[in-house]
Design a protein around this nucleic acid. Structure first.
Lengths: 235, 235
DNA sequence: CCTACCGATCGGTAGG
DNA sequence: CCTACCGATCGGTAGG
């Protein structure tokens, strides 16, 4: 079990004594244990699915009694939503970092795409990252309202792909329509959680290379030949 | 509810009287009602997931009493396996037809790929086809032994993609490594069950076109230029 | 966060 | 395939 998760945790992790938190009456302790429940839930939801996971399973994995998760979360569904929300926040944060790194506006579109793909795989396949897979494969179990909130976060995430794909389409590096391309590409990436095994041959970097080669085909890496290379930079 | 499923049903569908089957003592009636249970299970498993679906749900959807599905299937898990097996059999049958249609050996590799992609989308997105999506997204709920059987059918299915992809790789139309290409491509296709809506813009044919354009990039449709166009036909 | 508990539901079965 | 039923489990809560 990894305890290296940054999932939307407030900045209060460092100077707390080890072991079970002290029970001085005034302390609400909304950090440590809550995170433990969240992480246990993420792992179990991913492993067995939401419905097949028992709140008792989660409690046990977090080292609590059967009723205790409900001290931290109103319901099992609320827990699921919290997992997904945390997952999307790490995804959005990682993506923002990627965009700043090399996609700083008029960088070559294929370089920008590579950053997005890299970030996507990282957040999907990185160690201890069960949150995003849960979000991808269990949203069916969410109540309508929460499902819409998650859908909004996903839209926000996908929105950053559109200008990059538009650029690639304009320069002829991407032939398929942008909308369907986005859906198909993200599908190819998302499906990797079903089969990827870091100890089984290829690394995440291999995956990035393969995806880029698959999506962009020949003449992806080196060329500035196309006529309309410079679109009016919006910044 | 569609009652147009060919899922591994034996050839005994035609000359039976309409309405509830007669209860003459000698008749085991292993066709009609069993199929009804199977179809109801497929639809519900897909809609709500295996664990969230009740055998009572299935019974009700098939117009039976709560205990009756167990007359046809030993357990809920056996029902799940039956759904998946049926799904894979239609998939394999459809694929075989596709391979015969245009992939008749030394046809252009991209034409062969198009047939495979077309067949895949058909079986995945066709009306009343909940069996394959269930197989794709619920195998986690299968017991080990059955899971391996399903995995074998999947391997059998994927095996037909390999020579086609090898051909495309040899001719330079597919740049990414064949193994990862297969996984990424099938991921792109499989993910479509999550978002595809026939009433929402694009048709299955649009999807096929987009996938082909995405995977093969420029110079996919017309060319016989490569040097090693004729590999020794194995037939 | 634990103890003790409730009402509801679920997969499955006997016996016809 | 129906009737009637069982044992087990589950999400959730009161009350501290």
């Amino acid at each position: 079990m990894n305890n290296r998760f940054d999932t939307s945790a407030p900045d209060s992790e460092a100077k707390r004594p080890r072991g079970r938190p002290r029970k001085t009456v005034d302390e609400r302790d909304d950090g440590n244990r809550r995170q433990a429940v969240l992480a246990a839930a993420a792992q179990l939801f991913r492993q067995k699915g939401f419905s097949a996971t028992t709140t008792r399973d989660i409690a046990a994995a977090a080292g609590m009694q059967s009723g205790s998760p409900f001290y931290h979360f109103k319901s099992k569904e609320a827990l699921l939503f919290a997992v997904m929300e945390a997952g999307m926040h790490t995804a959005l944060a990682r993506q923002a970092a990627a965009v700043q790194a090399h996609g700083h506006a008029n960088a070559p579109a294929d370089q920008q795409l590579r950053q997005l793909v890299q970030a996507h795989f990282d957040v999907l396949l990185g160690p201890g990252n069960d949150f995003v897979p849960v979000m991808l494969y269990e949203s069916r179990s969410l109540p309508q309202r929460e499902r819409k909130l998650v859908a909004q976060l996903i839209s926000q995430y996908e929105a950053l792909w559109v200008p990059v794909l538009n650029g690639l389409h304009a320069s002829g590096q991407l032939r398929a329509p942008v909308g369907l391309s986005r859906l198909l590409m993200l599908g190819a990436l998302n499906w990797s959680v079903q089969w990827f095994d870091p100890q089984k041959g290829s690394s995440v970097n291999d995956l990035v290379d393969a995806a880029m080669a698959l999506f962009l085909g020949p003449s992806a890496t080196t060329h500035t030949l196309s006529g309309d290379a410079a679109r009016p930079s919006t910044e």
